[in-house]
Simulated assay, not measured.
Amino acid sequence: MIKNDKNERIGFLGVDYDLRELPFTGNIYQESDEWRQMKGDPSIRGGLFLQERVESQLDQSIDNVLYLMEELMLEHGVYHCQIHFSSNRATIWHADDCYVYRILTIDELCDPNICLAYPRRPYFERAIVPSLDIMDIFNQFKALRFMDETIYLRSASLNLVNGFIGLNFSCDGTHYLRYDEFKNQGIDFWL
């Protein structure tokens, strides 16, 4: 509001800013590192006890797949992976091209030569997950996959940089938690 010297309102001043043109002055959003649980589709939860796990091709080769994923993370620059146990595939993100994800089919996951498609790299320098913990985490994924015929792990992810684990179960429930919290939970906790 604009006033004259007699304190009388004589007009208004309006400004039109395009917020996209203003410089960014804050910090980028930082994700909370607290354990988060999200409920999924109610129709899936409602029919949960009418389903049971069907053995996938990945289940049949799970040990080899997990060793291959560990090798990609330890020696070939993969810093994030998502393993889709039920649909026989994995999605990976590589440090040399971090804006693009790659989908590995069951055939690729069962072929150790797939490692030759990715250059050898030292363990990712931004990783906060200790390299020795990767296989322990993967073995816990395996245990959750086979823990029950009705409630079981459908997909799981590991990010070495932020240390987050993502878990999606047959009930369509999803958990996001830090790798160290995940390691400290035994199979009994999930049952």
Rank of each mutant, 00 (worst) to 15 (best):
H175S: 14
G166E: 08
D16M: 14
N88F: 06
F169H: 02
V78H: 03
D63F: 12
G173T: 11
R102K: 12
L13K: 15
P112E: 05
N139G: 04
S157Y: 05
E55W: 09
F138V: 01
D63C: 10
V15H: 15
G186V: 01
F141C: 00
N162M: 07
C110R: 06
R178Q: 09
M135P: 02
D97N: 14
W190E: 00
G173K: 09
A156C: 04
L167R: 02
I137S: 00
N64W: 05
V161K: 06
N162G: 10
L13Q: 15
I137G: 00
I44Q: 05
N159D: 06
L109S: 03
E71M: 09
M135H: 05
I151S: 02
N168C: 13
F12T: 14
C171T: 13
A95V: 14
A127Q: 05
H84L: 11
P130M: 01
R20T: 14
M38Q: 09
E8D: 11
D97S: 13
E108Q: 09
M147R: 04
S43L: 10
I137C: 00
L158V: 03
S43I: 06
Y17P: 11
I106M: 03
D41Q: 05
T25H: 09
G14Y: 14
S131W: 07
E52I: 08
T174C: 11
H94Q: 09
Y67G: 12
V65R: 02
P122H: 04
D5K: 13
R178T: 08
R120P: 13
G163S: 03
E125K: 12
G40N: 03
D107W: 13
C81H: 07
P130Q: 00
F49Y: 11
K3C: 12
D148G: 01
R53D: 02
I44N: 05
P42F: 02
L109G: 02
I106D: 03
Q82S: 15
D97W: 13
T25M: 10
V161A: 06
Y118A: 04
Y17W: 13
D63N: 11
V78T: 04
R36Y: 09
M1I: 15
E75T: 13
I83H: 01
Y99W: 13
T91D: 14
W190H: 00
F182C: 00
G163Q: 03
Y99A: 14
R120S: 14
E149V: 09
Y176V: 05
